[in-house]
């Protein structure tokens, strides 16, 4: 199927690894002009080289932190200068890591009893302010074109906080992020702009693997046991691949999905419990 996004300019934050890289790759295959932003120059170069083979001359990388609104502004301006007005914005920023040495580089851990109020603010910056800033900078271009796609890579805990894990910060900040996108969808629908949110379930990324290593240590079990415990919660009986996230994101960003907006959609192998 032709998704109708050839020639469209797409920005993917966190685009050099994991889910972001899979999305950027799919967009490249669909003929879009793809800008990836990432904090780490080495990851960026490696992924760009890969993308360049798929889409010569249609990819661009920018080293930037997408949690700082000023830096988001710079990324959007540079993307526009390079390829033209932005049509697709994918926000894919990870949560605040409180103590990487202690906790692995996985999702922000912590408990209500142990977490200082200040950490809630940092997570808010990572997850909410970042996606707000990206949408805000891209919306004027989308309005001019009468066409736009905003998609946030969120988490299943937005709808069902994970209380079996020490997972306080995502549990608290993912719901507002999902809600913000729902509210933006209502504001932007009449401009031909759709806004959706992915409720990520258990996807196999390097980051998730490091989280399980941390969790296993924390619970004094083996990594295999920790992984099995997570797998047992997934009706499909396996973890998802980043490409399986990218498949839904590409559809939501297609011309065909023009009537789908304001949705939070789980990609979790049937693991979500909400009706």
């Amino acid at each position: 199927m032709d998704y109708g996004i050839a020639g469209r300019v797409a920005i993917v934050s966190g685009g050099s690894r994991g889910i972001g890289r899979a999305i950027a790759t799919t967009f490249a295959h669909e003929g879009a002009k793809v800008v990836i932003a990432s904090r780490t120059q080495s990851n960026l170069e490696e992924t760009l080289a890969e993308l360049e083979e798929i889409a010569p001359g249609r990819v661009h990388g920018i080293a930037a932190s997408m949690t700082d609104p000023e830096s988001v502004k710079r990324v959007v301006a540079e993307s526009r200068d390079r390829f033209g007005p932005i049509s697709i914005a994918i926000s894919n920023v990870i949560g605040h890591v409180i103590d990487a040495a202690k906790e692995g580089s996985g999702p922000g851990a912590g408990t209500f009893q142990g977490m200082e109020a200040e950490s809630y603010r940092e997570e808010f910056t990572q997850l909410l302010v970042s996606s707000w800033a990206l949408a805000r900078e891209c919306v004027p271009d989308m309005k001019d074109q009468g066409w736009g796609r905003i998609c946030n890579i969120g988490s299943g805990v937005a709808r069902e906080p994970s209380t079996h894990l020490p997972h306080l910060l995502p549990n608290v900040v993912r719901p507002p992020v999902a809600g913000m996108h729902r509210l933006m969808a209502a504001r932007l629908a009449s401009d031909g702009i759709t806004v959706n949110n992915i409720l990520t379930g258990s996807i196999l990324t390097e980051r998730n693997r490091s989280y399980w290593v941390w969790l296993a240590k924390e619970r004094n079990i083996t990594v295999a046991e920790a992984t099995q415990d997570m797998t047992d919660r997934i009706p499909l009986g396996r973890f998802g691949e980043p490409s399986e996230m990218a498949a839904l994101v590409a559809f939501l960003c297609s011309d065909q999905a023009r009537m789908v907006t304001g949705q939070s959609i789980p990609v979790g192998g049937g693991g979500s419990l909400h009706l």
Binding site: F112, Q113, A158, T163, N171, V172, R174, P176, A178, G179
Partner: peptide, 28 residues
């Protein structure tokens, strides 16, 4: 519900509290 009120900043903040309430419930 998008149509229940018109105060997006308050809605955003409240969603954080709904997540927190689940965490508190699980913990204590």
């Amino acid at each position: 519900s998008v149509d229940a009120e018109a105060d997006e900043l308050a809605a955003m903040t409240s969603l954080g509290m709904l997540g927190l309430n689940k965490v508190i419930t699980g913990e204590v």
